[in-house]
Computed example of a mutant assay.
Amino acid sequence: MTYVIVHALAPIFVIMLLGFYAGKAKKVDNHNVALLNVFVMDFALPAALFTATVQTPWAGIVGQAPLVVVLVLAMWIAYAAIYFLCTRVFHKAPQDAAVLTLTVALPNYAALGLPILGSVLGSTPETSLSVAVSIACGSVLMTPFCLLILEREKAKTEGTQHSSATMLPILMWRSVIKPIVWCPLLGVVLSAFGFHMPELLLSTIRPLGLAATATALFLTGLILSARQIRINQAVIVASVTKLLIQPFIAWGIVLALGLHGPLAITSILMIALAAGFFGVVFGNRFGVESPDAEATLLITSVLSIVTLPLFISLTAGM
């Protein structure tokens, strides 16, 4: 088991460390990562996830339904709890609370999902499909809540506020039309209709997908190299929630649903991943800086070196 854990995590953190070093050594501008982010989020990862979903039989896609239930419930519970604490206990502004909350609630599926599941369960179409499903859940069912709050507060400042009921469908649509969401969804639709993608087309886009994992990890390290650590109560609560409480929430849901085998392991390990960077990215887009979210992103990424092996070990017998 120790060999499996080391084999799973070593490449991940080595590549992240290279990205971190490149940013700190100024070999790459860690404050302007837009081009690399576009490559990962709009081209490489969508290609990898589309390839996975379109080659998966429809029955296999339907079998991912329990994973959706576990992920959505674990993310929503963490989101509600952290947002309540941020606004009522730590007295943060709504937009700052939204950025930190999304950072905690939405794991880093994009960068860490494929390498972790691939190392633990094997690099198969099923593991790639699970990552695609996870990203779609987070993009469509989580990010709109953060964007809704950011848009609402921006509208208040500009004096052009719209109702939340009007804005939410628009924001969900904006999430769906992102390549990282619609590409795997297109693969699902084609699979549902029994369409077989020509091998020539698959072999054409496959090299782009192969670049996804390493580039996403390098990008994560690069982003982390630009962050400053400022530890306070909010950061401690957020980090503990992300690394320990949220995965055990997922574990409880898995037990309640009676899941076992690879599906149960996937459900827990995907939630046990470090915090994602979508919250920080969205905050920057709206001019909202959240040092607490940045610190949580950095701390959870580092401490996941300890917590991920813990959950890999705990789920080994499921």
Results as ranks from 00 to 15, higher is better:
V4F: 03
A8K: 02
I15H: 04
L17F: 10
Y21W: 14
A22F: 11
A22M: 03
K24T: 12
H31P: 00
V40W: 09
M41I: 15
F43T: 08
P46K: 12
F50R: 10
A52G: 03
A52H: 09
T53W: 07
V54N: 02
T56A: 14
A65C: 08
L67A: 12
L67D: 11
V68Y: 12
V69C: 11
A74V: 06
I77S: 07
I77A: 12
F84S: 03
L85N: 00
L85S: 06
F90T: 00
A97L: 06
A105I: 06
A105W: 12
Y109M: 02
G113S: 10
S119L: 05
V120D: 10
G122L: 15
S123H: 13
T124K: 13
S128A: 13
S128K: 14
V131Y: 01
V140L: 14
F145K: 03
L148H: 09
R152A: 13
R152W: 02
E153P: 04
E158H: 08
T160P: 02
T166L: 06
L168S: 13
I177E: 06
S191A: 15
F193V: 13
F193R: 11
M197S: 14
M197D: 11
L200R: 12
T204M: 14
T204G: 10
P207D: 03
A212R: 09
A212L: 08
T213K: 00
L217N: 02
F218P: 02
T220A: 07
G221L: 05
I223P: 02
L224P: 00
Q228D: 09
I229L: 13
I236P: 04
I236D: 03
I245K: 12
F248R: 04
F248L: 15
W251S: 14
L255C: 09
H260N: 05
I265N: 06
T266L: 10
T266W: 06
L269N: 03
M270E: 12
M270G: 11
M270A: 07
A272R: 10
L273N: 01
A274I: 04
V281R: 02
F282N: 10
N284G: 15
F286N: 08
V288L: 10
E289A: 12
P291I: 00
A293I: 02
L297C: 09
V302Y: 04
S304L: 03
V306C: 01
V306F: 10
F311Y: 10
F311A: 05
T315N: 08
A316H: 12
A316V: 01
M318F: 13
